[in-house]
């Protein structure tokens, strides 16, 4: 497998008033082109810190982050900016990640403006195309973020992330704040975009049941380390690490015939 994104022995720690917190303790990951890798863990396991390191928002202590072969760790801000178009992110709360005073078309077009791609007319046309692609009506472009529902705001966030034609999307809990019917719409949209555009997703979540339905591979993160990794359905059916086992046993299965604490058996039910 030729990895598109490759993380090697990454460490990241913080100084706090109570001493050093070692949030990421030697993580290695590979993301192949067109693949969805889910990074699953509970709060405080270090998954968001890992994502921030990959996005260049947090400086790791040591290790490598390679995108298409080039190491991003240690690059200056100016050098790092060249790689931005290839790796974009979608956040959990689409409202707090969208500037409330800007119109939706401006928000979606902004990355194109910043990177100076195309003429103004081309950027506007590209913006309408993106809106249509993610299921938003292009004539809604003059509206502001607060005029949209949570699911529509997440579509705006996705359109904005796609504007620079990235090959990797880092999705940090993109559907955890959404209702289940809206979650299904957004997950299916991500699936379609991946099928049509060959995107790779690093999908960060606490929801192992969701990614069993959606991801190709799962990496289980616990106390700053990847403790188990494998195909999504294999992890569910046959978890090896005690943490994965206890997590699956704790997930309530939406089937009254599957008693609490026997989630692994649900697969064959």
């Amino acid at each position: 497998m030729t990895a598109l994104l490759s993380v090697r022995d990454l460490h990241c720690s913080f100084e706090t008033t109570r001493g050093t917190v070692h949030a990421v303790r030697g993580v290695s990951l590979d993301l192949a082109p067109g693949e969805t890798l889910a990074l699953v863990g509970e709060s405080g396991c270090g998954k968001t810190t890992l994502a921030r390191c990959i996005l260049g928002l947090q400086k790791p202590d040591s290790g490598e982050i390679r995108l298409g072969g080039d190491n991003l760790v240690g690059l200056s801000r100016r050098e790092a900016r060249r790689y931005r178009p290839r790796m974009q992110c979608v956040f959990q709360d689409p409202f707090s990640s969208l500037n409330p005073r800007r119109r939706v078309e401006d928000l979606i077009r902004e990355p194109l403006d910043v990177q100076g791609i195309g003429t103004p007319a081309e950027r506007r046309r590209k913006t309408s195309e993106l809106m249509e692609r993610v299921g938003l009506r292009p004539d809604w472009g003059r509206r502001f973020p607060h005029e949209f529902s949570g699911g529509q705001r997440q579509r705006i966030g996705i359109a904005r992330a796609l504007s620079l034609r990235p090959s990797v999307l880092i999705c940090d809990e993109p559907v955890s704040a959404l209702d289940v019917s809206v979650q299904a719409q957004i997950i299916n949209l991500l699936w379609e975009l991946q099928r049509d555009m060959g995107l790779s997703y690093l999908f960060i979540t606490h929801d192992l049941m969701l990614v069993e339905n959606f991801a190709d591979r799962v990496a289980m993160m616990y106390q700053g380390r990847i403790v188990e990794e494998g195909p999504a359905q294999e992890i569910w059916r046959n978890p090896q690490h005690a943490f994965t086992q206890s997590l699956i046993d704790a997930i309530p299965i939406p089937d009254p015939n599957v008693p609490m604490g026997s989630g692994r058996a649900a697969f064959s039910a």
Binding site: S149, Q185, N213
Partner: peptide, 21 residues
Amino acid sequence: ATPRPGRRRAGEPPLTEIPGV
């Protein structure tokens, strides 16, 4: 629309949507 283990079918959208809002 609710995810549940073992329902995935290759080549089909992962979840079943309720259209609209």
